[in-house]
């Protein structure tokens, strides 16, 4: 397998900063994509606005770069009108959790057959490093120069509570586990959500004394706790706070009925 079969060679090398985790996620995703045997001709990539939402621009496939936060809404429409297509959403923490939070929750609730990969870099990286909803407590950003007073969202737990079929969280330090998790999610029906905690050395690391990408990866390694162990260690933790931890692992894997199965599916797809 040549990984560049999946990429638009005329757009390469990509514009991401040196050490950005988006490339790692692309790498893991396409290894999983190749393993599952999906075809680019039969797959649509949907993204919103943000650094991670630039990923579909580098993929040699049909893609739609939608309005801010509405990636899941557009992807739901594509899946309902053309159920034979596989739809993958690449999105970021600000896109999915902040402005598109309600679309995310209701996408999980409807259990539309989508694969959502959220690259959580803990900051609004593209716009200059403002605090996002996933910025860890006490960490510094341009809008929180004395440390973030708020506690972050736990996107994976929200997806579990809202009813997604498959939820997992990994970091860019766990590349093999992430690849296996993407394989499992592509093989499953329903709303599959994978949160990848990723490094942003330019805007997050630089302000938090972790300017080197490897320092951020070391931070992920040290603070990651597998979910089965984490439950025993701390019941009421909030992920990614200063003294806290990144709970990694497979959160849930269940077989709820998906939306287009309940609504008859093909009746929406007759128009093409």
């Amino acid at each position: 397998m040549d990984i560049f079969d999946f990429y638009r060679k005329d757009q390469w090398p990509h514009v991401f900063c040196p050490g950005c985790g988006n490339g790692t996620v692309m790498n893991c995703f396409f290894r999983a994509f190749d393993k599952v045997g999906w075809k680019l001709d039969n797959t649509v990539f949907v993204s919103g606005i943000g650094c991670s939402s630039r990923i579909p621009l580098y993929i040699n496939s049909d893609a739609i770069h939608t309005t801010h936060g509405r990636a899941i809404a557009f992807a739901t429409g594509i899946k309902l009108s053309r159920p034979e297509l596989d739809v993958v959403v690449f999105t970021g923490d600000g896109d999915l959790g902040a402005i598109g939070g309600n679309h995310f929750i209701n996408g999980c609730r409807r259990n539309v057959d989508l694969d959502v990969i959220c690259i959580n870099n803990n900051i609004y990286g593209m716009t200059g490093g403002q605090a996002s909803i996933t910025t860890p407590h006490e960490y510094i950003s341009t809008t929180t120069p004395r440390g973030n007073r708020e506690y972050p969202f736990d996107l994976a737990e929200i997806a579990v509570a809202a009813g997604a079929n498959y939820v997992a969280r990994w970091t860019t330090r766990h590349v093999h586990e992430l690849t296996k998790s993407i394989v499992a999610s592509l093989n499953k029906k329903g709303f599959n959500f994978i949160e990848v905690v990723s490094q942003c050395p330019t805007n997050f690391g630089r302000r938090n004394k972790m300017a080197d990408p490897s320092a951020l990866l070391e931070w992920f390694k040290e603070s990651s706790v597998r979910r089965d162990k984490a439950r025993a260690a701390a019941v009421d933790h909030v992920d990614l706070n200063l003294a806290g931890q990144i709970t990694t692992g497979e959160f849930v894997s269940r077989e709820r009925e998906c939306y287009h199965e309940r609504t008859g599916g093909s009746s929406h797809g007759d128009g093409h």
Binding site: I3, P18, N22, G23, T24, N27, R31, H176
Partner: peptide, 10 residues
């Protein structure tokens, strides 16, 4: 294959 998988620029 940790180096190949984790290289952000492939």
């Amino acid at each position: 294959e940790l180096c190949v998988l984790s290289c952000p620029d492939q």
